Simulated assay, not measured.
Amino acid sequence: MSISLSKGQRIDLTKTNPGLVKGIIGLGWDLNQYDGGAGFDLDASAFLADEKGNCQNDHDFIFYNNLKHPSGGVEHTGDNRTGEGSGDDEQLVVDFSKIPENIHRVGITVTIHDAESRNQNFGQVSNAFVRFVDEVTGKELIRYDLGEDFSIETAVVVCELYRHNGDWKFNAIGSGFSGGLAALCRNYGLEV
């Protein structure tokens, strides 16, 4: 049975699930009634960061134009430009055994593509969630529903996977940013 988390909660992943090596991070969302004349494209990304929370280079930023980390530790399965349908809209596959030792956290984010020019924000998004699924068993281990407390934000740090005493944990963050992808990149120490 899946464990539902609230904003700010942390939970162990690998210690309480012995043998867990690979997982799927599924992200999903719906759109509120919207008629702005432009499509609404949400994009999932991952930032592989060191102990200080910074990415060392552009290869540590996984998104629709850089689908796989050189280590094979994190891979984006592809861009869904409409978000239509039920279930996961985008997925990232994490292989804990391949994540380099210098990586201490993996920030999972969602941004709205061209949000400013299209006058879009997360106030127009509903039913957003992230879930962590054991890739081997297909069992959903963790689910975090973000709620509806966003308005003008154009980017959200949904959750982080982080290393603690040799094990990996899950932190439900749900922190919004204005400034879209550029703001997130700066947050993780990357030049825009």
Rank of each mutant, 00 (worst) to 15 (best):
S126A: 10
G180K: 06
V156S: 15
G176E: 10
N187L: 09
Q124H: 03
A183F: 01
A115Q: 08
D95V: 06
K7L: 06
L31R: 07
Q124E: 14
D95M: 02
G78T: 15
G180I: 05
F47A: 13
N119C: 04
T14S: 01
S86H: 06
F96I: 07
D58W: 02
E101G: 04
G166M: 10
H59F: 15
D50S: 07
G189R: 06
D88G: 06
G28T: 11
W168C: 01
V110Q: 09
K22M: 13
P18I: 01
R131L: 14
R143G: 00
G123N: 01
R105M: 14
W29V: 01
L67F: 11
I62A: 01
Q124T: 03
W168G: 01
V110G: 12
N171Y: 15
F132E: 05
G180V: 06
C55P: 13
W29I: 02
R143V: 01
R81M: 07
L92W: 04
L5M: 09
G53C: 02
G166K: 13
H59A: 15
V74D: 12
V106W: 07
N80H: 10
Q56A: 10
I112G: 09
S2W: 10
N65V: 07
R143T: 02
L141A: 00
E191I: 14
S4L: 07
T111W: 10
I173Q: 04
Q56N: 08
Q33C: 11
Q56G: 13
T154M: 02
Q33M: 13
G147H: 03
D12K: 15
N32M: 09
R143D: 00
S6C: 08
A46Q: 12
L190R: 13
L92S: 15
E140K: 07
D50V: 07
R131T: 09
I62P: 01
L31K: 12
S178I: 11
A183S: 12
D79A: 06
N80Y: 04
K52P: 08
I25K: 05
D35Y: 11
N102G: 06
H69K: 03
I99V: 13
E101K: 10
V192D: 12
L42Q: 15
S97T: 02
